[in-house]
Design a protein around this nucleic acid. Structure first.
Length: 284
DNA sequence: AGCTACTCCTGGTAGC
DNA sequence: TGCTACCAGGAGTAGC
């Protein structure tokens, strides 16, 4: 499930193939992948423009578009659960799960493959309103220990749903939240405003560490399903301490890891390393 | 503010 | 072997 490290990796991979290229045409195989406007309006907005830059904000791949050398809107791509992007030859057949294809110059194309159809392409004249609703980048300058400490004190929510909330902090998803909370030795149901300073400092450090390490390893991928045709699997899944490891021994203390549900999300914890807050039965 | 429930999707798999 | 039922989950929305 693409989170910040996977989106960062994908962005880096496609960048050399798309930056500077003209979008000659658009093929949409699943119309609902296009969000916010009609298919016709989307095609009209995108065709004939040049991709000036490919970058990442939160879990969006952002393509800055130009027309006649001037900024001309942005294409935001969200991979959601199973979306993947690759640069391919324009004649290359990708199979039944390709949802969108941008035809580029020089016989190349940007192909969007998405089994579960949750991914979205949105063209925006101005992305500022969208991005201003997002919390800070966890690897950016704004995300300091002081910011996290004071922001947590202002919220009463449980840590996990708060960290998954993109308007609080952007880029984290289910996997890296579980990993960061484990590494910070904080139970997912701990209330944000109850953390002591050393705990919120630890959480800050571990969020950064886990994301940085995952980017170094080009993200996580589980099975062939999530890999790109170019064979870019990512290898961070081998570093998981808790995610998907329920029933196995905690690497830190040896206790059996558990899987619980927090906010309708599968949640992986070591109940010995991550002490539940008062009132939460230490069951299962 | 913040909770739950529901929606969108389909491949994989647990259970029988 | 083959069937069904359920699971995974990012984000948006509705209702309380």
């Amino acid at each position: 499930m693409p989170e910040l490290p996977e989106v960062e990796t994908v962005t880096r991979l496609i960048r050399p193939g798309v930056e500077g290229r003209l979008i000659r045409g658009v093929k949409v195989h699943w119309e609902r992948t296009i969000g916010g406007q009609s298919l016709a309006a989307f095609e009209e907005a995108v065709r004939g423009k040049r991709i000036a830059r490919a970058w990442r904000r939160a879990k969006y791949v952002v393509l800055d578009l130009q027309a006649r050398k001037r900024p001309a809107g942005q294409l935001l791509i969200h991979l959601r659960m199973t979306g993947r992007l690759h640069v391919v030859d324009s004649g290359e057949e990708i199979g039944p799960y390709e949802r969108v294809r941008l035809l580029l110059e020089k016989g190349r194309a940007l192909s969007f493959v998405d089994v579960r159809k949750f991914g979205r392409f949105v063209y925006l004249e101005d992305s500022e309103p969208t991005f201003s609703r997002l919390g800070p980048e966890p690897l950016g300058e704004e995300f300091t220990r002081e910011w996290l400490g004071s922001s947590l004190r202002a919220r009463r929510r449980a840590l996990k749903p708060l960290l998954l909330d993109q308007s609080f902090l952007s880029g984290l998803g289910n996997i890296y939240v579980d990993e960061a909370l484990f590494r910070a030795r904080l139970h997912p149901l701990r209330h944000a405003n109850k953390l002591k300073k050393d705990q919120s400092d630890r959480l800050h450090a571990e969020i950064r560490a886990v994301l940085g390490e995952a980017i170094e390893r080009e993200g996580s991928s589980f099975d062939a399903f999530y890999r790109t045709p170019e064979g870019q699997p990512g290898s961070y899944q081998h570093q998981f301490q808790v995610y998907g490891r329920h029933g196995q021994a905690c690497h830190a203390c040896g206790a059996t890891l558990k899987k619980i549900t927090v906010g309708q999300r599968g949640t992986h914890v070591c109940l010995r390393c991550q002490r539940p807050p008062r009132g939460v039965p230490q069951l299962l």
